[in-house]
């Protein structure tokens, strides 16, 4: 039985004399899972995270973290949370060790701890512990922010656009780190507009746009439910138009008539493929190659957000 670690109930945010940044949102995240909040820029992802972490005051609703109300019992709730912000906001003149120790103390823990060394080693920062933050690369600064967020041993880690603006190698390192943290028992909530990131890491996905949470679903179930498959036939002779005999199938011509594309529901009992291949043979339409692929999370995301736009 999954144990909820985060419960968001009826939370909304409307800025004074401004737009509604967040409609009424209900969300539950379970202990130990990786949850990805997907949405385009300005969708309300950061607003939602900021409300949970105490940075933004909600207009309505309640948030509970590890059983503690973030308003009434804010100290206990905040001790359970680590936040890695989107912006590289750091104290440039502090050393890595000093700033991570500062974060640990700020959250009520003693600064003398082997845990800090472990975190810095895990993030490949131990050798740089005496370096000033201003002397680090952007990628290393991002790691410092993660170390600061982990410094007080939080139960739940928020990563707001963790790989925005970082190179591919570092992105892969971040993904490995997130998986490692989960293995150690942490709950991870990340916002991203990189679909690949959610596809790679998340157990569950929430899609948010225009301040509304459109859906929350197991990633694999979402891809199975909303995913489509695509079959491309590379024709021996290019076509200028689809023959009337093939009008029973929703076919399109691609690649200047060299490719016949068929998009079908992968879960349907009758995909229509055997009959299509049979009809092609009857019509003497030859093909030299056949390729199928399933739609990605990105395709699903674009469909979902596009429908609402």
């Amino acid at each position: 039985m999954p144990e909820p670690i985060l419960t968001v109930a009826g939370v909304s945010k409307t800025y004074k004399n401004g737009p509604t940044a967040l409609g009424t949102v209900d969300l539950t995240v379970n202990r130990g899972e990786i949850f990805a909040l997907l949405g385009p820029n300005g969708a309300g992802k950061t607003t939602l995270i900021s409300i949970i972490c105490g940075i933004v005051t909600p207009s309505a609703g309640t948030v509970t973290v590890a059983g503690h109300d973030v308003t009434r019992d804010y100290k206990a709730a905040r001790r359970a949370i680590g936040l890695v912000p989107q912006e590289l906001a750091t104290d440039q003149f502090e050393s890595v060790l000093a700033t991570v120790t500062f974060s640990r103390r700020l959250f009520g823990r003693s600064g003398h701890s082997d845990y800090i060394e472990q975190v810095l080693r895990d993030l490949s920062l131990w050798e740089k512990r005496h370096s000033k933050i201003k002397d680090l690369s952007g990628g290393m600064k991002r790691r410092v922010l993660i170390a600061k967020a982990l410094a007080h041993e939080p139960q739940i880690l928020f990563l707001d656009e963790p790989t925005a603006g970082v190179d591919v190698a570092l992105r892969r390192d971040m993904w490995k780190l997130v998986h490692r943290l989960r293995e150690q028992g942490a709950t991870i909530i990340l916002t991203t507009h990189y679909i690949e990131e959610a596809e790679e890491m998340a157990d569950r996905v929430g899609v948010i746009t225009g301040g509304k949470l459109l859906l929350v679903e197991e990633k694999n179930a979402l891809m199975a439910k909303l995913g489509k498959r695509q079959m491309d036939l590379t024709l021996v002779e290019p076509m200028t138009a689809i023959p009337a005999a093939l009008s029973d199938w929703p076919l399109t011509l691609e690649d200047e008539g060299h490719t016949l594309r068929y998009i079908f529901d992968a879960k349907a009992e009758d995909t229509g493929i055997p009959r299509l291949l049979e009809r092609l043979a009857q019509q003497h339409i030859a093909f030299r190659d056949l390729e199928t692929r399933k739609s990605s999370l990105e395709d699903i995301f674009v469909d979902l957000v596009g429908e609402r736009a």
Binding site: C53, I55, Y74, K75, E87, A89, D91, K148
Partner: peptide, 14 residues
């Protein structure tokens, strides 16, 4: 100014 206020606001401090 630097944006590090997020840490202060999200810390368990009265």
């Amino acid at each position: 100014f630097t944006g590090t206020i997020y840490e202060l606001l999200s810390a368990p401090l009265s």
